[in-house]
Design a protein around this nucleic acid. Sequence first.
DNA 1: TCAAAGGGTTTGCTTTCCAAACCCACTAAG
DNA 2: CTTAGTGGGTTTGGAAAGCAAACCCTTTGA
Lengths: 158, 158
Amino acid sequence: MKDARPCSIADTLALVGEKYSLLVLREVTLGATRFDQLVRNIGAPRDVLTSRLKRLVDAGVLEKVAYSEKPPRFEYRPTRAGLELEPVLLTLMAWGDRHLNDGDRPMVLEHVGGPGHTGGHELVPVVTCAECGEAVRHDDLTAHPQTPGWTATGPAAA
Amino acid sequence: MKDARPCSIADTLALVGEKYSLLVLREVTLGATRFDQLVRNIGAPRDVLTSRLKRLVDAGVLEKVAYSEKPPRFEYRPTRAGLELEPVLLTLMAWGDRHLNDGDRPMVLEHVGGPGHTGGHELVPVVTCAECGEAVRHDDLTAHPQTPGWTATGPAAA
DNA sequence: TCAAAGGGTTTGCTTTCCAAACCCACTAAG
DNA sequence: CTTAGTGGGTTTGGAAAGCAAACCCTTTGA
């Protein structure tokens, strides 16, 4: 990753892109916050999980909260920043549902809307534009790198 | 990853979650489709990139298209499935912009809406519910695992 | 007193990663 | 021609990360 394109995607992946990290986020977002729940539900080696947790706590994505004193025991809860990774999880899940499991969803998310809503419905996440509200289509986007020397397809002049 | 929770997030990450894979998707989505553009723009070791490309082509996320015959040369273009990973990239980028670069975006995306729109505006991606159109908030979601023996927080009975 | 649960750490082996060097086919320049 | 350069990889050898299984420590329950 030397002299690579400056990019928030790369920055985010440097933090949560290691193997299992996003699965940790999935679990804590679902409410499984303890070490051996994580081991069981994710299937990660315990030592690897230990190092991932440390990294995510250091980064402020998780926080380590004691739930017992006498034997010191902790749970790993998502911070606000951690919860804000949920859109990433939702879009990953939607893609896998569509392209890998062909509609046989291993998990269904129920969406209960704001105060004015009664019944829940199944969530199908769509990425939209905050400004105009439309669903984002690839052809409607133009990339503008802000780093001098970079264009959309690479360094300007070598 | 044995006996882990069945999950489309994990399935998707098994495919595109290896180091650099999503950065490859970023590049080809931006239009940088050739081997050494990818090397330069991503900063990945060439041999690793070779193996990632093979994997993504095999998975149908990229396609290898010849653009020269006499020295056989190829470019790696995203398939429709590959382009549909763009929402993942957008949500990752939004998170990094917010939490890692604190508003100093390394890249700005311009959104030009449908036929009725004239000027473009800056894209701020938001995940919404296709059914009701509302922005998705964590507290409005309930997870329903479809796999017998699994609850939201883990295996039901061991 | 013995066993089990919870939360890790240690061990020893295997797999990846990585930078740098190398290779091959062609093209353009001198 | 001969040489230099570009594009697209493959090879090499050492450093780092991953892995399963075993181990450790504390506390509660039988």
